[in-house]
Amino acid sequence: METANIVENVAFNLLKQAVIYLPEDVKQALRKAYAEETGEAGKTQLKAVLDNVELAEKYQAPICQDTGTIVFYVKAGAVSKNLDKIEEALTKATRKATVEVPLRPNSVNPFTQKNSGDNTGRLIPYVNWEIVPGDSIEITVMPKGGGSENTCVMGMLVPGEGIEGLKKFVVDAVMRAGAKPCPPNILGIGIGGGADISIKLAKKALLRPLNEPNPDPEIAELEKEIFEAVNMTGIGPMGLGGKTTVLGVHVDYAYRHPASYPAAVAFQCWAARRATARINSDGKVEYLTHKMW
Protein backbone atom coordinates (compact mmCIF):
# COMPACT_ATOMS: atom_id res chain seq x y z
CA MET A 1 0.00 0.00 0.00
CA GLU A 2 1.28 3.47 -0.70
CA THR A 3 2.00 5.97 2.07
CA ALA A 4 -1.12 8.11 1.62
CA ASN A 5 -3.43 5.10 2.00
CA ILE A 6 -1.57 3.79 5.01
CA VAL A 7 -1.66 7.20 6.68
CA GLU A 8 -5.37 7.54 5.99
CA ASN A 9 -6.11 4.11 7.47
CA VAL A 10 -3.93 4.69 10.50
CA ALA A 11 -5.37 8.16 11.16
CA PHE A 12 -8.90 6.78 10.92
CA ASN A 13 -8.05 4.05 13.44
CA LEU A 14 -6.42 6.60 15.74
CA LEU A 15 -9.49 8.83 15.66
CA LYS A 16 -11.71 5.89 16.48
CA GLN A 17 -9.44 4.67 19.28
CA ALA A 18 -9.08 8.13 20.76
CA VAL A 19 -12.75 9.04 20.96
CA ILE A 20 -13.92 5.65 22.31
CA TYR A 21 -11.11 4.43 24.57
CA LEU A 22 -9.39 6.61 27.15
CA PRO A 23 -5.65 5.92 27.54
CA GLU A 24 -4.86 3.56 30.44
CA ASP A 25 -3.02 6.24 32.46
CA VAL A 26 -6.09 8.50 32.38
CA LYS A 27 -8.42 5.68 33.44
CA GLN A 28 -6.10 4.82 36.31
CA ALA A 29 -5.99 8.42 37.48
CA LEU A 30 -9.81 8.63 37.40
CA ARG A 31 -10.18 5.40 39.38
CA LYS A 32 -7.70 6.70 41.96
CA ALA A 33 -9.61 10.00 42.20
CA TYR A 34 -12.86 8.10 42.75
CA ALA A 35 -11.31 5.93 45.48
CA GLU A 36 -9.91 8.96 47.28
CA GLU A 37 -12.86 11.34 46.91
CA THR A 38 -14.67 11.97 50.18
CA GLY A 39 -17.27 14.56 49.13
CA GLU A 40 -20.67 13.10 48.25
CA ALA A 41 -21.23 15.29 45.20
CA GLY A 42 -17.71 14.71 43.85
CA LYS A 43 -18.00 10.99 44.34
CA THR A 44 -21.31 10.83 42.43
CA GLN A 45 -19.72 12.72 39.54
CA LEU A 46 -16.67 10.46 39.37
CA LYS A 47 -18.90 7.39 39.51
CA ALA A 48 -20.82 8.69 36.48
CA VAL A 49 -17.49 9.35 34.72
CA LEU A 50 -16.24 5.80 35.33
CA ASP A 51 -19.60 4.26 34.36
CA ASN A 52 -19.54 6.32 31.19
CA VAL A 53 -16.00 5.23 30.29
CA GLU A 54 -17.13 1.62 30.58
CA LEU A 55 -20.33 2.17 28.55
CA ALA A 56 -18.38 3.90 25.78
CA GLU A 57 -16.15 0.84 25.39
CA LYS A 58 -19.07 -1.56 25.62
CA TYR A 59 -21.15 0.20 22.96
CA GLN A 60 -18.18 1.43 20.90
CA ALA A 61 -19.54 4.94 21.21
CA PRO A 62 -17.59 8.17 21.68
CA ILE A 63 -16.97 8.89 25.38
CA CYS A 64 -18.21 12.46 24.95
CA GLN A 65 -20.52 13.88 22.29
CA ASP A 66 -18.03 16.70 21.84
CA THR A 67 -15.51 14.80 19.77
CA GLY A 68 -13.52 18.00 19.58
CA THR A 69 -11.51 19.94 17.10
CA ILE A 70 -9.23 17.45 15.41
CA VAL A 71 -5.57 18.24 15.99
CA PHE A 72 -2.72 16.06 14.74
CA TYR A 73 0.91 15.98 15.82
CA VAL A 74 3.17 14.44 13.20
CA LYS A 75 6.79 13.48 13.79
CA ALA A 76 8.11 13.05 10.30
CA GLY A 77 11.33 11.17 9.74
CA ALA A 78 13.53 13.49 7.68
CA VAL A 79 14.20 10.86 5.02
CA SER A 80 10.72 9.32 4.88
CA LYS A 81 8.94 9.53 1.55
CA ASN A 82 5.67 11.13 0.44
CA LEU A 83 5.47 13.60 3.31
CA ASP A 84 3.62 15.98 0.98
CA LYS A 85 0.71 13.50 0.86
CA ILE A 86 0.15 13.35 4.61
CA GLU A 87 -2.04 16.40 5.21
CA GLU A 88 -4.51 15.34 2.56
CA ALA A 89 -4.61 11.81 3.99
CA LEU A 90 -5.31 13.18 7.48
CA THR A 91 -8.14 15.31 6.13
CA LYS A 92 -9.65 12.32 4.33
CA ALA A 93 -9.39 10.20 7.47
CA THR A 94 -11.18 12.94 9.44
CA ARG A 95 -14.03 13.05 6.93
CA LYS A 96 -14.37 9.27 7.00
CA ALA A 97 -14.29 9.14 10.81
CA THR A 98 -16.97 11.83 10.99
CA VAL A 99 -19.37 9.55 9.10
CA GLU A 100 -18.27 6.14 10.31
CA VAL A 101 -17.26 6.45 13.99
CA PRO A 102 -19.20 8.88 14.05
CA LEU A 103 -17.77 12.22 15.19
CA ARG A 104 -19.89 15.31 15.78
CA PRO A 105 -19.32 17.91 13.06
CA ASN A 106 -17.40 20.61 14.93
CA SER A 107 -15.86 22.80 12.28
CA VAL A 108 -17.53 26.18 11.81
CA ASN A 109 -16.65 29.09 9.51
CA PRO A 110 -16.04 31.98 11.94
CA PHE A 111 -17.53 34.56 9.54
CA THR A 112 -20.63 32.85 8.18
CA GLN A 113 -21.11 30.54 11.24
CA LYS A 114 -21.75 27.73 8.77
CA ASN A 115 -20.73 24.26 9.92
CA SER A 116 -18.82 22.38 7.21
CA GLY A 117 -20.45 19.18 8.44
CA ASP A 118 -17.36 17.01 8.13
CA ASN A 119 -14.89 18.37 10.71
CA THR A 120 -12.72 19.97 8.07
CA GLY A 121 -12.25 23.54 6.93
CA ARG A 122 -9.46 26.05 6.47
CA LEU A 123 -6.46 24.71 8.48
CA ILE A 124 -8.65 22.06 10.12
CA PRO A 125 -7.75 19.35 10.97
CA TYR A 126 -4.71 21.21 12.23
CA VAL A 127 -1.37 19.52 11.78
CA ASN A 128 1.63 20.25 14.02
CA TRP A 129 4.78 19.17 12.20
CA GLU A 130 8.06 18.10 13.70
CA ILE A 131 11.01 16.83 11.64
CA VAL A 132 12.94 14.06 13.37
CA PRO A 133 15.84 11.86 12.27
CA GLY A 134 15.00 8.58 10.55
CA ASP A 135 12.48 7.25 8.07
CA SER A 136 9.39 6.50 10.14
CA ILE A 137 6.29 8.66 10.65
CA GLU A 138 4.65 9.00 14.05
CA ILE A 139 1.10 10.33 14.16
CA THR A 140 -0.76 11.46 17.25
CA VAL A 141 -4.32 12.67 17.28
CA MET A 142 -5.78 14.90 19.98
CA PRO A 143 -9.52 15.45 19.63
CA LYS A 144 -9.79 18.58 21.78
CA GLY A 145 -13.13 19.41 23.37
CA GLY A 146 -14.49 22.95 23.31
CA GLY A 147 -15.39 23.27 27.01
CA SER A 148 -11.83 22.91 28.23
CA GLU A 149 -10.43 24.85 25.28
CA ASN A 150 -12.56 27.84 26.31
CA THR A 151 -10.71 28.20 29.63
CA CYS A 152 -7.17 28.14 28.18
CA VAL A 153 -5.24 31.30 28.95
CA MET A 154 -2.05 32.97 27.78
CA GLY A 155 -0.41 35.85 29.55
CA MET A 156 2.68 38.02 29.29
CA LEU A 157 3.77 37.97 32.92
CA VAL A 158 6.16 40.30 34.71
CA PRO A 159 9.71 38.89 34.36
CA GLY A 160 10.66 40.37 37.75
CA GLU A 161 8.06 38.17 39.47
CA GLY A 162 9.71 35.06 38.06
CA ILE A 163 8.36 31.64 38.91
CA GLU A 164 6.15 33.09 41.68
CA GLY A 165 4.27 35.09 39.08
CA LEU A 166 3.78 31.92 37.08
CA LYS A 167 2.38 29.97 40.04
CA LYS A 168 -0.10 32.73 40.78
CA PHE A 169 -1.12 32.88 37.13
CA VAL A 170 -1.90 29.15 37.12
CA VAL A 171 -3.83 29.15 40.42
CA ASP A 172 -5.88 32.15 39.26
CA ALA A 173 -6.62 30.44 35.93
CA VAL A 174 -7.93 27.32 37.68
CA MET A 175 -10.05 29.42 40.05
CA ARG A 176 -11.50 31.41 37.16
CA ALA A 177 -12.20 28.27 35.13
CA GLY A 178 -14.10 26.67 38.00
CA ALA A 179 -16.59 24.08 36.78
CA LYS A 180 -16.37 25.08 33.11
CA PRO A 181 -13.56 22.85 31.77
CA CYS A 182 -15.13 19.59 33.09
CA PRO A 183 -12.80 18.93 36.02
CA PRO A 184 -10.91 16.90 37.06
CA ASN A 185 -8.59 18.42 34.46
CA ILE A 186 -5.08 17.97 33.22
CA LEU A 187 -3.12 21.22 33.07
CA GLY A 188 -0.53 21.85 30.40
CA ILE A 189 1.71 24.77 31.29
CA GLY A 190 3.98 26.35 28.71
CA ILE A 191 6.58 28.94 29.62
CA GLY A 192 8.83 31.18 27.54
CA GLY A 193 9.68 31.34 23.86
CA GLY A 194 7.08 33.93 22.93
CA ALA A 195 3.30 34.24 23.08
CA ASP A 196 2.69 31.64 20.36
CA ILE A 197 5.36 29.25 21.60
CA SER A 198 4.10 29.18 25.20
CA ILE A 199 0.56 28.14 24.25
CA LYS A 200 1.85 25.57 21.77
CA LEU A 201 4.06 24.02 24.44
CA ALA A 202 1.21 24.07 26.94
CA LYS A 203 -1.14 22.21 24.64
CA LYS A 204 1.47 19.71 23.55
CA ALA A 205 2.34 18.99 27.20
CA LEU A 206 -1.18 17.53 27.54
CA LEU A 207 -0.02 14.58 25.45
CA ARG A 208 2.44 13.40 28.09
CA PRO A 209 1.04 10.39 30.04
CA LEU A 210 -0.10 11.15 33.59
CA ASN A 211 2.34 8.69 35.13
CA GLU A 212 5.35 10.40 33.57
CA PRO A 213 6.59 13.41 35.50
CA ASN A 214 8.93 15.87 33.79
CA PRO A 215 12.36 14.25 33.31
CA ASP A 216 13.97 17.35 34.87
CA PRO A 217 13.62 16.79 38.67
CA GLU A 218 13.30 20.50 39.41
CA ILE A 219 10.44 20.91 36.94
CA ALA A 220 8.88 17.67 38.20
CA GLU A 221 8.93 19.27 41.67
CA LEU A 222 7.20 22.39 40.30
CA GLU A 223 4.56 20.19 38.65
CA LYS A 224 3.93 18.46 41.98
CA GLU A 225 3.77 21.74 43.87
CA ILE A 226 1.20 23.22 41.47
CA PHE A 227 -0.75 19.93 41.45
CA GLU A 228 -1.10 19.98 45.23
CA ALA A 229 -1.89 23.69 45.34
CA VAL A 230 -4.71 23.68 42.77
CA ASN A 231 -6.26 20.61 44.39
CA MET A 232 -6.62 22.71 47.53
CA THR A 233 -9.20 24.91 45.79
CA GLY A 234 -11.99 22.41 46.56
CA ILE A 235 -13.57 23.01 43.12
CA GLY A 236 -13.67 19.25 42.67
CA PRO A 237 -15.19 16.98 40.02
CA MET A 238 -17.49 19.03 37.74
CA GLY A 239 -17.11 22.00 40.07
CA LEU A 240 -19.56 20.51 42.54
CA GLY A 241 -16.92 20.39 45.29
CA GLY A 242 -14.33 17.79 46.20
CA LYS A 243 -10.68 16.86 46.47
CA THR A 244 -9.72 16.28 42.85
CA THR A 245 -9.74 19.37 40.67
CA VAL A 246 -6.79 18.24 38.53
CA LEU A 247 -5.45 14.79 37.66
CA GLY A 248 -2.04 16.05 36.65
CA VAL A 249 0.11 19.06 35.80
CA HIS A 250 2.59 19.01 32.92
CA VAL A 251 5.10 21.81 32.42
CA ASP A 252 7.24 22.50 29.37
CA TYR A 253 9.37 25.52 28.55
CA ALA A 254 11.57 27.39 26.11
CA TYR A 255 14.11 30.09 26.95
CA ARG A 256 12.56 33.55 27.10
CA HIS A 257 13.43 37.09 26.01
CA PRO A 258 14.90 39.14 28.92
CA ALA A 259 11.93 41.53 28.75
CA SER A 260 9.21 38.87 28.43
CA TYR A 261 7.76 36.09 30.54
CA PRO A 262 5.18 34.42 28.31
CA ALA A 263 3.11 31.77 30.08
CA ALA A 264 0.15 29.68 29.04
CA VAL A 265 -2.21 27.24 30.69
CA ALA A 266 -3.97 24.67 28.51
CA PHE A 267 -6.90 22.88 30.11
CA GLN A 268 -7.80 19.32 29.23
CA CYS A 269 -11.10 17.85 30.41
CA TRP A 270 -11.15 14.46 32.15
CA ALA A 271 -11.94 12.89 28.77
CA ALA A 272 -8.28 13.30 27.86
CA ARG A 273 -8.37 11.71 24.45
CA ARG A 274 -5.20 10.97 22.52
CA ALA A 275 -3.87 8.14 20.35
CA THR A 276 -0.50 7.56 18.70
CA ALA A 277 0.86 5.19 16.05
CA ARG A 278 4.16 4.82 14.22
CA ILE A 279 4.38 3.90 10.57
CA ASN A 280 7.72 2.35 9.68
CA SER A 281 9.33 2.76 6.26
CA ASP A 282 8.36 -0.82 5.33
CA GLY A 283 4.70 0.09 5.92
CA LYS A 284 4.47 -1.78 9.24
CA VAL A 285 2.26 0.02 11.78
CA GLU A 286 2.67 0.04 15.55
CA TYR A 287 -0.13 1.43 17.73
CA LEU A 288 1.59 2.96 20.73
CA THR A 289 -1.18 4.18 23.05
CA HIS A 290 -3.89 1.63 22.28
CA LYS A 291 -1.97 -1.63 22.17
CA MET A 292 -4.93 -3.97 21.76
CA TRP A 293 -5.52 -2.68 18.24
Binding site: A48, N52, L55, A56, A61, P62, Q65, G145
Partner: peptide
Protein backbone atom coordinates in the same frame (compact mmCIF):
# COMPACT_ATOMS: atom_id res chain seq x y z
CA UNK B 1 -29.80 19.78 37.29
CA UNK B 2 -26.10 19.21 36.70
CA UNK B 3 -25.36 16.21 34.55
CA UNK B 4 -21.76 14.93 34.56
CA UNK B 5 -19.90 16.66 31.75
CA UNK B 6 -18.53 14.22 29.21
CA UNK B 7 -20.72 11.35 30.41
CA UNK B 8 -22.30 11.26 26.99
CA UNK B 9 -22.97 7.55 26.59
CA UNK B 10 -24.59 7.38 30.02
CA UNK B 11 -26.90 10.16 28.84
CA UNK B 12 -27.52 8.66 25.40
CA UNK B 13 -28.55 5.35 26.94
Amino acid sequence: GAFTGGAAVLAAK
